[in-house]
Write a protein that binds this DNA or RNA. Sequence first.
DNA 1: CAACGATTGACAACCGATTGCCATTTCTTG
DNA 2: CAAGAAATGGCAATCGGTTGTCAATCGTTG
Lengths: 340, 340
Amino acid sequence: MTAPPGFTPGKPATIHDVAALSGVAASTVSRALSNPDRVNFRTRARIEAAAAQLNYVPNAQAKALSSGQSKAVAVLVSDITNPFFFDIIRGTQLQLKAAGYTQLLVDTEESDEVETSTIEQLRNTADGIILTASRLSDESLEQIAARLPTVAINRSVPGVASVILDTPTATNQALDHLISLGHSHIAFLGGPATSFSSTRRWDALSAAAEERGVEVVRLGPFAPRTYSGAAAADALVHSGATAGIAFNDLIAIGMLQRLRERGVRVPEDMSIVGCDDIFGADFCSPPLTTVTAPVEQAGRVAVTMLLSKINSAVGAPPRSQSILPTHLTIRSSTGPAPHK
Amino acid sequence: MTAPPGFTPGKPATIHDVAALSGVAASTVSRALSNPDRVNFRTRARIEAAAAQLNYVPNAQAKALSSGQSKAVAVLVSDITNPFFFDIIRGTQLQLKAAGYTQLLVDTEESDEVETSTIEQLRNTADGIILTASRLSDESLEQIAARLPTVAINRSVPGVASVILDTPTATNQALDHLISLGHSHIAFLGGPATSFSSTRRWDALSAAAEERGVEVVRLGPFAPRTYSGAAAADALVHSGATAGIAFNDLIAIGMLQRLRERGVRVPEDMSIVGCDDIFGADFCSPPLTTVTAPVEQAGRVAVTMLLSKINSAVGAPPRSQSILPTHLTIRSSTGPAPHK
DNA sequence: CAACGATTGACAACCGATTGCCATTTCTTG
DNA sequence: CAAGAAATGGCAATCGGTTGTCAATCGTTG
């Protein structure tokens, strides 16, 4: 009579303990548990009973060592602080767990050195890597992807699988939205200079602006944090624009706070558009008009792509790229351009 | 001439490759790298050079297998969705990385079964566990802690090390704050029935209320999500109270939204107090008066305690408990009681 | 110069699994 | 009933390290 799960006197049971108890060799236990058809029905039953009785759980390290698969995936984020990544983490976690994988979460602190050394460490430990907002060069990314299954989120490099949130399209919608409200002086509050997304959005935005015959200036760069919002807000006011499109919601929310402090009313005097639709964008004051991106889904898709790469054995897996659509969510931080 | 980090032709180098290149035995390489004094100065230099040249990184699995230490710590959270945990995760991540540990993040989805089975899996894989808002029974926790270094956050069980955020004390400050504003009918919007924190705060609150001669009723339980705020707000209005103390900020923020929809002004008609001071509490509308807890610090302290347990070898480590002070942050969601 | 102790490095067992290969058993079929 | 094929289970090598044990080497001293 053994106690229910939770018992376990000394050291955890090994495959040898199970083998001894069921009167077979360790190798047979291994087969019974992984390759059931390879072993006799009755023997298997005996082994399973013994395993259950001993509360046997295979040692992941040993398994990884001999099989070469660690069943772990590393997820690198540039800043755990950023709510944007929370949704990604949530998505990857969900999907990884469903597939029986463990998630190794690492914060690279926006440093390419930390990022590089972490990847170096993980090379043996993880079966694959998901990179978000990588600060690495295209070449580095290619090299990494060449030797370890890799999926990048919001970063497009030839030869590297990626999941892209198509924010530029919705940003252009935001532009049209603002134009339709009578704005003709608009500013883009850019993110970090090394940010692929920021560059991509600015390119799309300036092209669209020219096409539509309105003036859009670029301000920044600003760190993607709420505290950068103050500087961004001041720059925006100083630029003479009547509307600002921020790199992300964090900056936008920071701007909202700063503008209020300065007595600039939103949206009466100034319209603000954010990006990502993070937690808080709907209840800040005023609720933020923003580009809603399926961030959690991006995490899930990235995992799906990564796992298919991992399990695709050899061959040249089609270098895939998945583009996720976004849309403009209009709330209360945008309004008609002020009369001059 | 080897390329800089990032090169790596075929399989990653092993300790044997390093040994071969430097002309010594693998065991010597192992010693040179871990127990430097055990090996000759010149030999060590040769080995280190070889290791650098081959871009050698020790295999974590193999290390774990032979040394019995995985240098990994599992952090279980009941719901990754909850911003409260983000700060914990941030804290643990920071501290773990500083100590050279890897963080295994797991979402238990508020299910004790998932929690139990996860811990079972992790028994061999992780050197220790940090449990947040555990749904397990005291007995289960004791058993777990008995066989694997464990630290619980916001859960006090004899024999299990823990980090407690002392929210009851600040909640009582909130009570005094409300009383001083003229409120005499106050409600506590409780969290999940199984929540240790919720119970603890209610006990403290009701005792304090009695002492001060005011009436505090308990409503709920409510799930710790913003969407529960609607029901909580309605219950609060119906109760006839003029002020509500919510289990956490998520509920409080949800209440704010609902009250606005219903045309109940905050704080003119109703005062609201939250708990935790999560991301968003300062920029919701109106900014939330709440109990500010050093959540990230709790994560850091938990890691520190856990690592000292892990490294304390045998002996009976003093069953420790760390209580972190909190304070009331007064913003704009509380005000004088409405005149009747 | 011989003997001694201290230092250094190699050998081999081990951690807990997986898996190729082979021997044995069992069942089927001529 | 015998022979061959299929099913089954065991042995042993292997994954990449760690570590106890012991032999060889070094320098030192009497």
